[in-house]
Structures are given as structure tokens and as C-alpha cells.
Design a protein around this nucleic acid. Structure first.
Lengths: 305, 305
DNA sequence: TTGTACGCGTTATCAA
DNA sequence: TTGATAACGCGTACAA
């Protein structure tokens, strides 16, 4: 592989001039510029990113650490982030983490020069102490300065409103287990009920692995079912089908967290605006922390095609 | 951030000795070794990966380019590959590509020193010319030396066998559009029918966007439906539900390509052995091309929980 | 407008 | 067993 010396030799100029031409700086005689371009073409010269990185002390790599429980949920993020990163001439280094320890390990490891910054996504566990160049998306943490949160309360309210519009007044809710997100969801649920003057029936609200089973055991009729994410939705759809309860005729299942593009979901859902999210992440990475109002991101109603 | 000079100074040894200690080489006096270790600890010194890369001419980064149409299908691969790469102290640089041009572009870009090698996954378009350090998984290409293929014929045969065991003798098939994979699927379908002495009814076989619509328009009864992947399966499930045809009672839908872990799929499917696949990819990357017999990978029957 | 020389942080070589 | 020094390939002050 040809290096900058080979090019400078062939073009009869110095390394510096070659570098100047390639970085598009002015103040280079057209003649030299041409000579350099020709030499570059002839030698098929491509600057080495490693050497560039050593010089500039920046690799252009952004570590993305997926800490979401159901990894299928993260594909949407990855796609959106990769697209946005590429637009900014940056690279996406992918990692998965399942707990605070593995997250810490990854941050240490790829932070040793390989990555300029990192993004942690969807962690449902308590976060360890993180360096300044790490931002979080939809994670369990209080530091809103470097983090992007979701407005799950609003999402749940929107969901309730939608199913009510569809004539469903008995809204069951399957929730996450005690976490910040769970609290928000419950809050949105309460708000919606109040707003529409509906009674709160605790027998319709459950959480945890056995949530649906518990719900069905109550023998309380319901014609809408809010679930916290797509994985839970799949599960619910399967169980309801086995019981012969038609979806959506008998029960309308609604997912409060879908990363599928609008229309791709088989059920109504709240979809998070992935492009916007990715752009906000970029802004945060660029150090524009001031632009981060800490305002949680609001999802959009997404209906099946 | 402290560098090797700071350490050598504090430990009263030369850079070379520090490097020796950290790379675990023998031939270092215990006394010096201790001094170095202490200095490292005191300064919280972590060697810079970039500088290491410049020296060794290798970053440890492996580019993974997802070229699959439905990106949700690729999450399984990503997870398996990341795990295996981490085991080998390597890093996963993620890219998406939609066609030959964008693939070429990515290969050029991240091949400029950033990545030691690359893996292309699931491309359904004709591949451009690729450097030696690129391997492919489930792509449209003939070069079996650096590529891993799937045995879709066997998968389809297995699928037919399963649905037949479940008492379904009218097996409809939705196929990819004319590609190598489509040919294999058709072959497996024919083989299974022959084996079980069933007649071939062309009205049961369709491909393309309107496949399911065409199939239903034929008005030929069927009680099993083979679809090429999970996305098509979702689509089929939705359409069948709208027509009031119960799944799996009336029609058993079977996905010929699921990357979900066994038991996670809502329908019976052929799942590819992701760990094995990742390991084979590592072997190929390690240059053990001889170990690649070109033998296509066989999937496993995966039933809903 | 151009070239020289040095810094980036590490590994490898070679002589001591 | 150790240290000085040369790569590795590029960016960039600074001088000309």
C-alpha cells in the first residue's frame, strides 16, 4: 500500500504539499495540485486512517453499546444511528452489554483510544459511573445533561386516548417491573383515566413475567391491552390466540415501545422518532450539551398498514 | 492521559522496558517489572490502541456490513458475531448497505486501515469485486472459498417433512424472487414432495410482492404455508388473520429463515445456528480458508414454545 | 507557495 | 537484562 512519501516522490513535491492538496487547503499552485492528484491516482493512494488518528488524536469511531434486554428492539436504533453517524463521517463500533459490570468493561476497553465517544442504549439496570464522553439513550439514570429520555407517560396517555377512540373503555395494562419507566407508564395511565373520567381498576394492571396470566386469572373483562414493548406484545398475541380471543376485534393490543418504522407494526403502537433521536445524540456527542434541554422525547402513534 | 513516557520516567526505566512488561515478555528483572507496574497503577496508564495499531498495522476491528433487506433479520447475526469477536479480542464496526454501490463504498472506506477484515451479510444483490480480506455470509455469490452459504434446499425439505408430520398435505409455498436461494427452496420443495409421493401443484407456489394475494386468488385449498423469512411470515399472519383463517389450526405458517433463538419464534421455523456460524466466520477471518469446505450450513427446526 | 522537521504513542531492532 | 533509536504514516507549525 502506497504511503504519502511515495506520492510526494512521484509528484516531485513534499509530503506537506500532498497533505495540503488532500485536505483541500488553498494556497497550492495548480500545477502541484495536478501533479499530486495524478500521483494519487497512479498509486491508488488512500491515506491511512490509523496514522491520521494518531496525529489528530481522534478515530472518528463512536461506540454504541446496546444494553437493551430484547436485542431485537435495538435494530431500529442501530440503523438510525449508523445512518446519522455516516452523515457525520463517523463510524459505529458495536457492543452489547447485559449488566453494569459488562458495560463498565466495554467502556474501559473501547475508551482506550479506539472510540472518541460512546452511546449507551436501553439499559434497565443501574448505570456505573461513566466518563464525560458517554451519553445515554433511554437508560435508567438521573443525569439528564448527557442523556436522552423517553416520555413514557405521554406515550401511555396517547395509547389510552387512541384505544378509547376505537371504542375500548376497558383498558388493561401490562407494565415493566418497578423502574422509572414503569412509574411513568402508570402515571400516564392514571392521567388518561382521569381525563376521560374512567374508574381505575387495579385488577387490570399487572407487571412481571406472569402479568398476562395474572390478568386473565382475574376474570375481569377488557377489550384493550397496553403492553410495554414489542416482545411482550408478541407474547400477548400468542397467548390470546391460544385462548381464541381475536385481535384486534375482541382485544386491541397496543405496544408502548416499537422501534419498527411506521406501518411496519402489526398492531397499533407508540414509535419513537429514530431520526430525530439520532440527530439529538449527534448534537450531544458534538458537545452541544446546552442544546439538550433534558426534555424527554415524545413518541408518535403508529398504526398498522 | 498518561503515556508510556510518563510511565518510564516514573519507573526509572526506558520505554522499551515498559513495553516489555506490559506485553508480558520474559527477560525483565523482577525489580523493574514491579516498578513499572506501580507506575502504571499510579498513573492509571492504559496503552493507546491507536498507537499500537500504527505500530502493528492492525486495528483489531472487523467491519460487519449488513446488506439484508429486512434489517430486523440481522440482529441475531450481530449479537452472535459480536460475542465471538469479543472472545477473540476483536471489535465490530457496523455498517449497513442496500446495494452494490453502497457496499463498495463502505468496503473502500473502512478498508482504508480502519478494519483488518470485513464480513458481508445477507446481500441479495450481485456483489461487486471484493478484496481478499472480505468474507460473505448468506450472500449471492459463487466464490465459496471466502463465503458461507445456507442449505435452503435442506431447510425446505425439513419444513415440508415437519408440516406433513402435523398432518398437512397441502403445502403452499411463497418463495423469494428468482435468485440462488429461490432455486434452492424450490428444489427442496420438489424433493420433499417426491419423497412423500405428493403431487406438485404449481398453483400453490408463488413469489414476489403479490405472492400471497396470488395464492389466495387461486382458490386452491392449503393447510400449510411455507414463507422464506420472518418478515414475510408476519405479513402472511396478518393477512390470514384478516381473512379469518386461524393460525395454526387452519393454516400452519412456517418460516424458512428465522434468526430468533429457538423457542422465541411464534411459528415453526428453520433457525440457523448462529454460534456455529460466527465461529466459522472467525476461522475464515483467521485465514483458515482450508477449513472452509464450502459445505453449506444446515438450519435446525425451531418450534414455538 | 513550498519544504523541513517534529510530534503523536507504540513496538521492534540492535548494541551494550 | 537494558536503553537508545528507528520505524509506523500522517498533520502541521515554522521557516524560507
Amino acid at each position: 500500500m502506497a504511503n504519502i512519501n511515495d506520492v510526494s516522490r512521484l509528484a516531485n513535491v513534499s509530503k506537506a504539499t500532498v497533505s495540503r492538496v488532500l485536505s483541500g487547503s488553498r494556497g497550492v499552485k495548480e500545477e502541484s495540485r495536478l501533479a499530486v492528484m495524478q500521483a494519487v491516482e497512479a498509486l491508488q493512494y488512500k491515506p491511512s486512517m490509523i496514522a491520521q488518528s494518531l496525529s489528530t488524536q481522534s478515530t472518528g469511531c463512536i461506540g454504541v453499546i446496546c444494553a437493551a434486554e430484547n436485542i431485537n428492539q435495538s435494530t431500529g436504533y442501530l440503523h438510525a444511528l449508523e445512518k446519522e453517524l455516516r452523515l457525520n463521517q463517523k463510524y459505529l463500533l458495536l457492543r452489547f452489554a447485559t449488566d453494569a459490570a459488562s458495560l463498565s468493561h466495554s467502556v474501559d476497553e473501547i475508551g482506550r483510544g479506539l472510540c472518541d465517544a460512546m452511546i449507551v442504549i436501553g439499559a434497565r439496570f443501574a448505570l456505573p459511573a461513566l466518563p464525560d464522553n458517554v451519553i445515554t439513550i433511554d437508560c435508567l439514570d438521573a443525569d439528564s445533561g448527557r442523556s436522552i429520555h423517553f416520555d413514557r407517560s405521554f406515550a401511555t396517555e396517547t395509547a389510552c386516548q387512541y384505544v378509547l377512540q376505537q371504542g375500548r373503555r376497558q383498558i388493561a395494562l401490562i407494565n415493566f417491573e418497578n423502574s422509572d419507566a414503569a412509574g411513568q407508564i402508570l402515571q400516564g395511565y392514571h392521567l388518561a383515566l382521569e381525563k376521560f373520567l374512567l374508574p381505575y381498576d387495579r385488577r387490570l394492571v399487572h407487571s412481571g413475567d406472569q402479568a398476562l396470566t395474572q390478568l386473565l386469572a382475574q376474570n375481569v373483562p377488557f377489550n384493550a391491552l397496553l403492553v410495554p414493548d414489542d416482545a411482550t406484545a408478541q407474547d400477548a398475541l400468542r397467548q390470546l390466540a391460544q385462548l381464541g380471543r381475536n385481535v384486534p376485534q375482541a382485544v386491541m393490543v397496543f405496544s408502548l415501545d416499537s422501534t419498527l418504522p411506521p406501518g411496519a407494526s402489526a398492531i397499533p403502537a407508540i414509535a419513537w422518532p429514530l431520526e430525530t433521536l439520532a440527530q439529538r445524540a449527534m448534537a450531544l456527542l458534538a458537545g452541544q450539551f446546552s442544546a439538550n434541554t433534558g426534555e424527554p422525547v415524545r413518541g408518535q402513534l403508529s398504526l398498522p398498514a
